[in-house]
Design a binder for these strands. Structure first.
Length: 519
RNA sequence: GCCGGUGUAGUUCAAUGGCAGAACGGAGGACUCAUAAGCCUUAAAUAAAGGUUCGAUUCCUUUCACCGGCACCA
């Protein structure tokens, strides 16, 4: 039975169009999902949308659409983005889905309630009629609401609260012990220092008259669930938690990995574990926290008009190029900057001149000198064409022996790649692939197979086999990142992507038009 | 205000108590299988000031700048 792997992105709030930041998150998740599948695991990859709240009802009103229609329309954009970027998600959950999501969110509520962790408390605050919501002093100018120009009323209302404070120590223990891993370490420290100060109970519901667009609190029609109990529960509701049969839930929970942005760290690393502990459910194993993307060094904002639109980029440059930029040019953990100039530079340097050109030159030589069919030479012949280790950086100095590419791929590149994957450092994983490309480009230079073929055809065959074999592995390692490019390379090589490397006996090369034309 | 982090080449990032590396971009060169790509060579950097040390970019202190978190005021 295959080991399971359950991973999720955060669910996107649908009050605006998908931007590059969400694209990055979902692409990262996709790479990890594809990688885990290639490792033979049974993967369940969830993404989706967070659709409730007063903000959405108000936005819907402005467009004149009923809120359900508005939500359908906006949620669809996120699903489209996933499709455009070739995301291999298994499921797409929407929190407005009454059949799929509500039962899970409500079951979780009942569990917390049965545990005695939900209690009613009156809340006193400044209520703005225009907002139909509480506002803080921050929203006021001269004591009046900035948006509505009205003086807010002081209103007292009853809400449910969740006893998050009770779980502070347990959560801290889980994070310190590694039961719940937070990556990178800087984010772990951040959340630990927050836990050090102690968690406060949090407001868990709102009166239904203020927020009708949401999940009703079980047994109290006057109240609607506030964001935590609703949105966070998507991770279990999508698996059928609260349904008659909880088959998927039983199989896949706990999550192996939640991928989130830094802005929602505390909800995932504090509130969500608290809820799960209260409900008596296991904690997720790992949370990967990524940063934000700026555009030309500035925060993306609608008013600045600098929102980088992933649809436009994919349309213009192709989904693979967008995936490449998000994964390799941006840190997997920190913030990053997008500019179209850098995008093009990186595309030309690495996709066109690097990967594309390498495939092209190997392809051409093998077509020209061997009619496209290159057979595997004897082991001795393969060992006789080592890489010049001056270029290889790795086994340097202490080793005097020389190694051929197939040996280095197996003993250096693959282990390093696996290691970077385990560390969830996708950027580094990409670096390793491009180091391999660089090594093989140098290898062509050293042996000059285009000259060698006239003097010693058998040796040239060994060199070109090594290059073709290297190309096969490049496609292999690339498959989670640029799946359709990897497929193209396999097709050029005339082999299937899941071929056993040690069983390969011959590559039958085909003509192709370049992988990535220069910009 | 408190806590934490960061500051290295034009840019993005490495590393180290003992000659500071890479990639992209720049400059030059020899080649031609290739997408005028690739290869080789080359210029170019430790924010500032003190301290510890034979030696500090690394450790310590201060200043400055930026980032993150928390809190407070409005």
């Amino acid at each position: 039975m295959a080991e399971k792997f359950y991973l999720t992105t955060s669910i996107a709030y649908i009050n605006s169009s998908p931007h590059l930041g969400f694209a990055k998150e979902i692409v990262m998740a996709d790479v990890l999902a594809r990688h885990q599948r290639l490792l033979g695991k049974e993967v369940y990859f969830l993404t989706g949308t967070d659709e409730h709240g007063a903000k959405i009802s108000r936005a819907a009103e402005k467009t004149g659409l009923p809120v359900e229609k508005f939500a359908d329309r906006n949620a669809e954009k996120f699903r489209e983005l996933a499709e455009v970027l070739n995301i291999s998600f298994d499921d797409f959950i929407r929190t407005s889905d009454k059949k799929r999501h509500f039962p899970g969110a409500q079951k979780m509520w009942r569990r917390l309630s049965e545990k005695g962790d939900l209690y009613k408390k009156s809340y006193r605050g400044l209520y703005c009629v225009g907002h139909e919501a509480f506002v803080t002093e921050k929203d006021l100018l001269d004591g009046k609401c900035v948006d509505h120009g009205q003086t807010p009323e002081i209103i007292e209302e009853e809400n449910y609260f969740f006893k998050l404070s009770v779980y502070t120590e347990r959560i801290k223990e889980a994070i310190v012990s590694g039961e719940l891993v937070i990556a990178p370490a800087s984010r772990k420290n951040e959340i630990l220092s927050l836990l050090e100060e102690g968690l406060e109970d949090i407001s868990f519901s709102r009166p239904a008259r203020d927020i009708s667009w949401g999940v009703p609190v079980p047994g109290d029609p006057e109240q609607t669930m506030y964001v935590w109990g609703d949105a966070l529960a998507n991770y279990v509701s999508a698996l059928g938690y609260g349904q008659e049969k909880e088959t998927l839930f039983k199989k896949f929970w706990p999550a192996d990995l939640h991928i989130i942005g830094k802005d929602i760290l505390r909800f995932h690393a504090a509130v969500w574990p608290g809820m799960l502990l209260s409900a008596g459910l296991p904690l997720p194993k790992k949370i990967l926290v990524h940063g934000f993307i700026t555009v030309n060094g500035q925060k993306m904002s609608k008013t600045l008009g600098n929102v980088a639109d992933p649809f436009v980029l994919a349309e213009k440059y192709g989904a693979e190029a967008v995936r490449y930029y998000l994964l390799r040019e941006l840190s997997s953990f920190g913030d990053g900057d997008f500019t179209e100039e850098k995008f093009k530079e990186s595309y030309n340097a690495n996709l066109a001149n690097g990967l594309g050109n390498f495939v092209s030159r190997v392809n051409k030589m093998i077509l020209q000198y061997f009619d496209g069919a290159i057979e595997k030479p004897a082991p001795a012949a393969l060992a006789a064409v080592p890489v010049n280790l001056e270029e290889v950086f790795i086994f340097k100095k202490e080793t005097v022996e020389y190694f051929p590419p197939d040996y280095l791929i197996e003993n250096f590149f693959i282990p390093e790649y696996q290691k970077a994957m385990r560390e969830l450092d996708l950027q580094k994983t990409g670096d390793i692939i491009w180091r391999l490309i660089g090594m093989l480009d140098g290898y062509i230079q050293d042996y000059e197979p285009f000259k060698l073929v006239k003097k010693d055809k058998e040796k040239a065959r060994a060199v070109l086999w090594q290059l073709a074999f290297g190309m096969f592995w490049i496609a292999r390692l690339l498959a989670p990142f640029l799946p359709s490019t990897a497929e193209k390379i396999f097709s050029i090589l005339g082999v299937s992507g899941d071929a056993k490397p040690e069983k390969l006996k011959i590559f039958r090369f085909k003509e192709h038009k370049g992988l990535f034309p220069r910009l």
